[in-house]
Design a protein around this nucleic acid. Structure first.
Lengths: 332, 332
DNA sequence: TAAATACATGTTATCGCTTACACATGAAAT
DNA sequence: ATTTCATGTGTAAGCGATAACATGTATTTA
């Protein structure tokens, strides 16, 4: 059996409550402090966190539920969350829905059961509206990152996807491009809808021609981008391609180069995300960078505000990406 | 305040222990079962996991400590771990040492404090020997993935890196190559030493010439591979390059192509890892694939064996990679 | 030196659950 | 009808911590 606070008290010749106070940083007499230190080392005592949580109804821990823990995009967000959590003295633990197809809402039990003080749900998949509604009823601290199904009532944070694409359109427009093609992504991903909407709105605003046959879908992989570009190459008339992710943009670039089409001289291309690879390819890819860390921080801040009983705006908070100009576009 | 088992008992007109038994799947009379079901729904009862863990000294949860949660290599391993854990009815929670430079051993407190029943430490960084020794003294279920500092006394699982490189050497030798260059990786990574050792041993065995100037280090990034290859290009005489990771191999490929050196006609190149990108590049890269999922499963199995009190071999368990032949090498 | 104050420590109830044990109930065996 | 046994349920004692309250000791002040 592990030693308990009671054992420590016995060995140090004092009482449980003194031990508890000492452990929690309250002042004790110098002599008892030393005795306690010795006792704790001798017994190799570690406090039982479960007992503590039971009586305190508090865990000092937040849960982060991610659909795919190895998604590289989440790493920046997680860094942001952890930065805030560390400052607040909280621990982060991660739950992954990766292999088992558990739904996010199924992790809410962690909250009910007292395993965590709050939860951040992190996923760029499009979310189920029923699940979102269910979450709105949860009287516990909760923050969403990613799609919020355009409904209010939940504290959520996301990239302003529409704005990012709009920036790309504007940039191409400034370079003189009037007809641009678009490589979209898989429909189950949250950002897809907003990126397309941003494209359409900005193009309309700038009175650019929008042709449905200049829009193709991809699965957001490199290979998908390659294939989408091949498909797109059967149409003509556009002078630039906007890919809705850098990975597809790079695949598309490969298809273009394979066809002997020079980038950017004969075709301009831009991506979205600013992944590391984007600066390596040739030509280096113009794209927009997502403020991932800020997103994570904002979500964590909102969560802690809720944990501490403050009022938060239960609505969506968006962060604008920033344009990163490299060498994949040319002036017309 | 949340409803407790006591509230449920009151509403269902029975006693705490009956509720507890019902919740734990023991048989109760049909009538009480129905009453309990109703009471639980009415009250929206969720059992307090902390109280339960306190009295049971058991969490049904294992902790997975990873240095960088977004490392794509870990995703396969994690899938393996989760598969075994799910089968055993355990939950996995992840702890990340990402942002804060916490050492792995500092997560052992989770075990002492009763937060988890066992821990898997997952990292491909080279491990600190002092930390490893400290872990050997821990009388709790523990499994290591990655470097085990060549010491026994810990249950650990790893890729057989030496064997992987040896396979590559053998393959090149079979193709007629006798003089090969090698792009190593960063010294703080665990596999580096073993991969180099595998290279040297197999080359010696096959009586191939090993020249120090044909060995350069890289940081295992694409750009690092590019630079390493440039450095290597100042030397001559070798007919093939073994890169110690696919990402560097792809960078090296870029450098070669930039110099107008045709792959595989003028230079053969192989990588290590079999990342997705390796089959996309041109020419598709010959490499070795790591059995990541198996590694994860083996670690989890060893951990559960320990949790269940079985004896396990407290030593290193290695899994051999398999050669994946594509088109980046030519017969001499 | 006695009274007033501050500070450190001990006593005890409590958090919500599981479980050993005792007890009640009803069916099966005598 | 009585005894036996199985089965379901209640009582009560912990699990290991915190914290309100009471108490004791040291320090300051009159």
């Amino acid at each position: 059996m592990n030693p308990t606070i009671h054992d420590v008290a016995r060995v140090a010749n004092t009482s449980k409550s003194t031990v508890s106070r000492y452990l929690n940083g309250q002042k004790v007499k110098k002599a008892t402090e030393e005795a306690l230190e010795r006792a704790i080392i001798t017994l190799n005592y570690h406090r039982n966190e479960n007992a503590r949580r039971l009586v305190m109804s508090r865990t000092n821990t937040i849960g982060i539920v991610v659909d795919n823990i190895s998604n590289i995009f989440y790493s920046g967000i997680i860094r942001g969350i952890e930065a805030v959590a560390n400052k607040k003295g909280y621990n982060c633990i991660f739950y992954s829905g990766t292999s088992n197809a558990k739904q996010e809402a199924s992790f809410l039990h962690l909250l009910f059961e007292g395993q965590v003080d709050g939860i951040i749900l992190l996923s760029f998949q499009k979310r189920d509206l029923l699940e979102l509604e269910r979450m709105m009823d949860v009287p516990y601290p909760l923050a969403l990152i990613g799609d919020h199904g355009e409904m209010d009532g939940l504290y959520s944070v996301d990239i302003d996807n529409a704005s990012g694409v709009a920036d790309l359109v504007t940039y191409l427009h400034e370079l003189g491009h009037r007809r641009v093609a678009y490589i979209s992504g898989p429909s189950h991903m949250g950002p897809i809808k907003y990126r397309l909407k941003g494209l359409q709105q900005k193009m309309q605003e700038l009175q650019m021609e929008f042709r449905p046959e200049w829009v193709v879908a991809s699965d957001w992989t490199n290979q998908g981008g390659y294939e989408a570009m091949k498909e797109l190459l059967q149409e003509e008339g556009y002078t630039a391609v906007i890919a809705s992710s850098d990975e597809t943009a790079i695949g598309a670039l490969r298809a273009l180069q394979e066809q002997g089409i020079q980038v950017p001289n004969q075709m301009s291309i831009v991506g979205f995300d600013d992944i590391t690879l984007s600066s390596w390819v040739s030509p280096p890819l113009t794209t927009v960078r997502q403020p991932l860390q800020q997103v994570g921080m904002k979500a964590a801040e909102g969560l802690f505000a809720q944990i501490e009983g403050e009022a938060v705006e239960r609505t969506s908070h968006l962060f604008k990406p920033t344009l990163v100009i490299r060498q994949s576009c040319t002036k017309l």
